[in-house]
Simulated assay, not measured.
Amino acid sequence: MQFTKLGAFISLFSLISASALTFTLGAQEKSCFYIFTEKPRTSVNFYFAVQSGGSFDVDYAIKNPKGVIIHSDEKQRQGDFMINADEVGEYEFCFANGMSTFAEKVVDFEIKFQDENDIYKAKMPVQPNSQPNTHVEGMQTTIDNIDSQLDNLLKALQYYKTRNNRNQATVRSTESRIYYFSIFEVLLMVGMAFLQITIVQIFFKGSRKQLV
């Protein structure tokens, strides 16, 4: 698998079954990444989550090697789904932040091949001329279960990471609003006090003129 960011043309990962990346998407910016499938009918798991910025949402679109959009949506905070890469070639994954005029977004995403004959999946070594063994099959089943549980654990960690980052961003935003509101409140109180003093001075000046 190979990724290339549009505009930079830098290879980030090469020949791995799963790749995760965190990047910053500026306001009014669009970033695209690519994977190349070598076999038809490959299932690709696609996960992304907006960690911070604005309303924590982005637009995304996935195109096949012919340039046809096979999956897209707008203003999404996160997504975790599987697409069928039926054709061999380069698939395009694009993120857009066109709805934001000044807020940049931090996005995590991961793309993973789901292949039945995945060479990266943990398996028991096979001895030549060996006969089927119940114990070996049981150990392989245990390995598969551990692999599935680790995958579920990874997804849970990704979920908690996203929630933690968003909660921290919300806290920082709330603190900033309280700070500026407090400054505005102080200025308003000073302005009201100054206005009251001015009105009282005008009142007493008018009273003195009437007495004279």
Rank of each mutant, 00 (worst) to 15 (best):
residue 2 Q to G: 10
residue 3 F to H: 00
residue 3 F to L: 07
residue 10 I to K: 15
residue 10 I to V: 13
residue 11 S to Y: 01
residue 13 F to W: 07
residue 15 L to C: 09
residue 15 L to W: 06
residue 17 S to M: 00
residue 20 A to I: 01
residue 20 A to M: 05
residue 21 L to F: 13
residue 22 T to S: 12
residue 24 T to D: 13
residue 25 L to C: 03
residue 26 G to T: 00
residue 26 G to H: 05
residue 28 Q to N: 02
residue 30 K to V: 09
residue 32 C to K: 10
residue 35 I to Q: 05
residue 37 T to M: 04
residue 39 K to I: 07
residue 39 K to M: 08
residue 40 P to A: 01
residue 42 T to F: 04
residue 43 S to M: 12
residue 48 F to M: 07
residue 49 A to H: 10
residue 49 A to N: 15
residue 50 V to P: 01
residue 50 V to A: 03
residue 51 Q to W: 04
residue 58 V to A: 08
residue 58 V to G: 01
residue 60 Y to F: 14
residue 60 Y to W: 04
residue 61 A to F: 03
residue 63 K to I: 02
residue 65 P to A: 02
residue 67 G to M: 07
residue 67 G to I: 09
residue 70 I to Q: 04
residue 70 I to P: 01
residue 71 H to K: 14
residue 73 D to F: 06
residue 73 D to R: 06
residue 73 D to C: 06
residue 74 E to C: 09
residue 74 E to Q: 13
residue 78 Q to G: 06
residue 81 F to E: 03
residue 84 N to L: 12
residue 88 V to G: 10
residue 89 G to N: 08
residue 91 Y to V: 00
residue 91 Y to Q: 01
residue 92 E to V: 00
residue 92 E to T: 07
residue 93 F to C: 12
residue 96 A to N: 08
residue 97 N to L: 00
residue 101 T to P: 00
residue 103 A to D: 15
residue 106 V to M: 08
residue 107 V to I: 12
residue 107 V to S: 05
residue 109 F to W: 05
residue 111 I to M: 06
residue 112 K to Q: 11
residue 113 F to H: 03
residue 113 F to R: 04
residue 113 F to G: 07
residue 115 D to Y: 02
residue 115 D to L: 10
residue 115 D to M: 05
residue 118 D to V: 03
residue 118 D to P: 00
residue 118 D to E: 13
residue 119 I to C: 11
residue 121 K to E: 08
residue 121 K to P: 05
residue 121 K to C: 03
residue 121 K to D: 10
residue 121 K to M: 06
residue 123 K to R: 14
residue 127 Q to V: 13
residue 128 P to W: 01
residue 128 P to R: 06
residue 128 P to G: 03
residue 129 N to A: 03
residue 130 S to T: 05
residue 130 S to N: 02
residue 133 N to T: 03
residue 133 N to Y: 02
residue 136 V to L: 14
residue 138 G to I: 01
residue 138 G to H: 12
residue 140 Q to D: 00
residue 143 I to E: 01
residue 145 N to F: 02
residue 146 I to R: 06
residue 146 I to E: 00
residue 147 D to W: 07
residue 148 S to Q: 13
residue 149 Q to I: 11
residue 152 N to F: 08
residue 153 L to N: 15
residue 153 L to S: 15
residue 155 K to V: 07
residue 155 K to T: 11
residue 156 A to H: 10
residue 156 A to D: 10
residue 157 L to R: 15
residue 159 Y to E: 13
residue 161 K to S: 09
residue 163 R to E: 14
residue 165 N to I: 01
residue 166 R to M: 08
residue 167 N to D: 11
residue 169 A to F: 11
residue 170 T to N: 15
residue 172 R to L: 11
residue 174 T to N: 10
residue 176 S to R: 13
residue 176 S to D: 15
residue 179 Y to K: 13
residue 180 Y to A: 01
residue 183 I to F: 06
residue 183 I to N: 14
residue 186 V to S: 07
residue 188 L to A: 14
residue 189 M to Q: 10
residue 191 G to S: 12
residue 193 A to E: 06
residue 194 F to P: 00
residue 194 F to A: 13
residue 196 Q to C: 06
residue 198 T to K: 14
residue 198 T to C: 05
residue 199 I to Q: 11
residue 200 V to Y: 10
residue 200 V to L: 10
residue 202 I to H: 12
residue 204 F to V: 09
residue 205 K to T: 02
residue 205 K to N: 08
residue 206 G to S: 12
residue 209 K to H: 06
residue 210 Q to I: 12
residue 212 V to Q: 05
